[in-house]
Design a protein around this nucleic acid. Sequence first.
DNA 1: AGTGATTAATTCATTTCTGAAGTACAATAG
DNA 2: CTATTGTACTTCAGAAATGAATTAATCACT
Lengths: 179, 179
Amino acid sequence: MCSQKSPVTDPGSFAATEARIRRTHERFPAFRRDAAVLVRLVRHIQAQVHDAANAILREHGLNHADYNILIMLYGSADQAMNPSQLGGAAGEKSANLTRICNGLVDRGLVDRVADPQGDRRKVQLSLTRRGVELLETLLPVMTDLLDRCMLGFAPDERDQLEHLLKRLLVNVEALGRPA
Amino acid sequence: MCSQKSPVTDPGSFAATEARIRRTHERFPAFRRDAAVLVRLVRHIQAQVHDAANAILREHGLNHADYNILIMLYGSADQAMNPSQLGGAAGEKSANLTRICNGLVDRGLVDRVADPQGDRRKVQLSLTRRGVELLETLLPVMTDLLDRCMLGFAPDERDQLEHLLKRLLVNVEALGRPA
DNA sequence: AGTGATTAATTCATTTCTGAAGTACAATAG
DNA sequence: CTATTGTACTTCAGAAATGAATTAATCACT
């Protein structure tokens, strides 16, 4: 109403989303405003982080999915995981995980070997030295990205948010199961 | 009837993610635990909601992206939006939005006409009667999905979460803008 | 009125992701 | 032991999403 729209995504744009949700609620009262707002917020946040990460990683020849795999391995107890663990951790479907790891193996960032326990269905994925090196050149800039997400959040607010999101996660994980 | 959905994340597994983040922080101290946890929570929540919505909508011949477009239009003030508004609202890139809307137009759920204001660059998208009818058959089940997300949340907790996520959104929206 | 920048939407080639099916192995039970 | 059931991963074909043009119209200035 007052100033002209700011250049990229204008920060007040979520107000329009809320107005739409309100109208939907008016037309269809069972449709809950609060839940809809939360779900759309999560969607927008995730999309923005994803895009920002992709933009940064592109110039290093990686994308967000690749990075996620690398950092999962970097943080894993014995520097190694098998695809199903990795898929769960990174939130990738198994078919997609196979494809992503193929790329990382081809580029010499990840090693794929037979499961040391001898279960011949399983496979062990781990970072190569090159993988570790690349990831460690990425970490400063990705860390900076995370820092910028947290600007203006007090420690107790972060805790609050973390706690609430964990409860939300429990709820949404149950969505896949019932009828 | 016997085809079971394979869960992407096994429930309770977020503890493993936290352990990985902690180890990453130990190896690379600047990497912040709190921000990383929040970002991964958001990612997992979004993925679960997306998958659950897709599973529900598939049997109606739609997917989550389609549904989002329909409900944005349903809630819009004059039942019509142009692609750029819709893209911003639904969090879709413009190229993708064109593709999605092509499909919806082809199926007779959405109308695409010239902008009534006369700006010949613009296009008006609106729900057809069939689009409204289909959406209204979907709304009960999608509403139920949203309700299940909110199980166990008190009103003030929902407010808290909404408030915190809005602040997080402001931060992540700034990520895209050059530092 | 003429120019250069901006905005809106689309196209296009390519990459990424998905669901379903397939292969190989392991575990369990009859 | 062998049959059934379940798990781990891969393959595959098709769908969805991306980034970089492209086309076309409007805007902002002079």
